[in-house]
Design a protein around this nucleic acid. Structure first.
Lengths: 339, 339
DNA sequence: ACCGGCGTTTAAACCGGTTTGAATGAACGC
DNA sequence: GCGTTCATTCAAACCGGTTTAAACGCCGGT
């Protein structure tokens, strides 16, 4: 089996120097048109493509970006955000032939993972997702000199550019939607409070209650999981006066919550209204269909990738604020029951 | 800002040649113990880590494996298989410091994507998932000389090593379970027939009916989607004599199907039994909890990665057959209704 | 005939590792 | 005292690109 051709083979075949081949390849000006033609057809004939390692070595750019998923393994599969987000990233970086390096790590090894990614110089930059309060990563990437963009949270510190999408309008809209339906006792089943986005959604619920002139609602943790959503719902329904509506941190916990309520003999939405967050593909196909909040993770990924690429190439990039999440009303919300 | 140290800096500080540093780094024999010590502490002091590009260039190994996801973007987020599978891969490759290059592509660009991955030499090997009947990829990777393992299907052709997991026992068990409950009309809502695994599951259903001495059942496409599952279910329920049990190609379509049945006023499992496939996290938290089939995608990823790494390093690897999928009985299946 | 300038091309250095073949020096046997 | 052997170390070539600075050929102008 013939080894892959190198730039020298192409140069020889085209009767030029390696430098000229390189110039043509990177379409630098100053190469005669007919020479370009000869080089191109020689490359074509040999089926030559530059070796990415060699190129990386001399340019100092590896043409890859990194995404670290530092969630508990069980959680990763349940979140529709990441696949869609990654698909968005791909549409951008594959245009320029760049690659996406994925690293999964246990949350406790997260910092170590970034360090290694930077030390080995396997990526030109990284995305920082799932930012937490007091997250060490912004300082870390600054220390490492690793280009990075914060996904989802403005002002993450360390002067990190961010690409964010505001969850809150959708959550507030949900609360106002429920208030308009006559609900006065609206509970919230929250995601893990260490995530900035989980906390922000919860805060939006709380703020909206105040805006709507409603009393404070019950807050329970749901962990963004099915199990957590189910447990929280059970607790809520056991209360002397259960809420008439529950807003969940995501669709997974909402769906599990719906099942618990239905098992308890409640009819949805007549006896209880439910709102989720994410608009997973299943959401339109539950019974009743789930009222939820929809963001656009694909465009989020796209915008994040554009920002990161620009940051890598030019050294700076502007913060981006995407269109906020919006409420999608379906059948799981209805008029509050009369007591 | 100081540029990253190179092997030459370490050599200078330790008072040895670059070659010696390299030997120590790769713990090759023949370096005096005290020299090793000096080199190591010099490296430590400078915080030096070898540049992966430079190393890749001289060794010809880039220390990364590739995974191409060639599904429709909408489908990717709905499948719990991939995140878990990737997590399994990670546990293996991160041990040796290797990376996972992820490429997403539209199904129609799939071949092109593999070609580029190989041409740029960005990965040392790839996983072939979602194999289809007459899939061009086994021949392609053979032509490209790209190490690859087939995931999920033995005998994919071109002498490709495979890591497979038999879906069929679980599906057969499901049918026998239903038959034991008195069901005689068991329908199947299938995934896209072009996928070998989808077709194989469907075949298992069909075979099991025969084994159980039951008449042929109705087969409808469900596309592995919520929408497809819902539509197929509606069609089944409209029939003059609807089936008393439905087996679905995956949990997503099963869950959507359950919702349709419940909307139609059926009680589950009294009026209709439902079986899914995958055992997604939500499956235990639907109402009723979903009887389904469980594989182990994490160990699948692990085994696939081990096989691929061995293939890359030694040139060959044995086929692996994992523990087959198993039936998980929950509340969505029950005795057949008396007509 | 000579010079300056321009467009085109190239030799050679460089990126940061690995690897080979030879040099070094100490220990050993005769 | 001298040739061997062995363990250790190193200089230099190599991987396959990019980039800089210089060389080249050719033109028109004087």
């Amino acid at each position: 089996m013939a080894r892959r051709p190198t730039i020298a083979d192409v140069a020889k075949l085209a009767g030029v120097s390696r430098a000229t081949v390189s110039f043509v390849l990177n379409n630098r000006p100053g190469v005669a048109a007919d020479t370009q033609e000869r080089v191109r057809s020689a490359a074509e004939e040999l089926g030559w493509t530059p070796s990415s390692s060699a190129r990386a070595l001399s340019t100092g750019r590896v043409r890859a970006v990194g995404l670290v998923l530092a969630r508990e393994p069980e959680l990763i599969g349940t979140d529709p955000f990441f696949p869609a987000f990654m698909a968005g990233i791909e549409t951008v970086i594959s245009e320029s032939g760049d690659g996406l390096m994925l690293q999964m790590s246990r949350p406790e090894n997260e910092v170590e993972t970034y360090r290694r990614l930077a030390a080995d110089h396997r990526v030109d930059g990284v995305f920082l997702t799932d930012l937490r309060a007091g997250d060490p990563r912004p300082a870390l990437v600054a220390e490492l000199g690793l280009p990075a963009v914060a996904v989802g949270v403005p002002d993450s510190g360390a002067g990190l550019p961010s690409v964010s999408l505001d969850d809150r309008p959708a959550v507030r809209a949900a609360v106002h939607h429920l208030a308009g339906l006559g609900h006065r006792d609206i509970a919230y089943v929250a995601g893990p409070e260490e995530f900035v986005h989980a906390r922000r959604r919860r805060q939006a619920w709380s703020d909206a209650l105040t805006e709507a002139g409603l009393p404070e609602g019950t807050l329970l943790p749901g962990g963004f999981t099915a199990e957590g959503g189910a447990r929280a719902t059970r607790l809520l329904l056991q209360r002397p006066t259960p809420p008439t509506a529950i807003v969940y941190g995501n669709d997974l916990s909402a769906t599990a919550g719906m099942a618990v309520a239905q098992d308890a003999g409640l009819r949805l939405p007549e006896d209880l209204s439910v709102v989720g967050f994410d608009d997973v593909p299943l959401a339109s196909y539950t019974s009743p269909p789930l009222t939820t909040c929809r963001a656009n993770p694909v465009s989020w990924g796209r915008a994040s990738a554009q920002a990161l690429v620009e940051l890598i190439e030019t050294g700076t990039t502007a913060d981006v604020e995407l269109e906020p999440a919006a409420l999608v009303v379906r059948g799981s919300t209805g008029p509050a029951p009369v007591r």
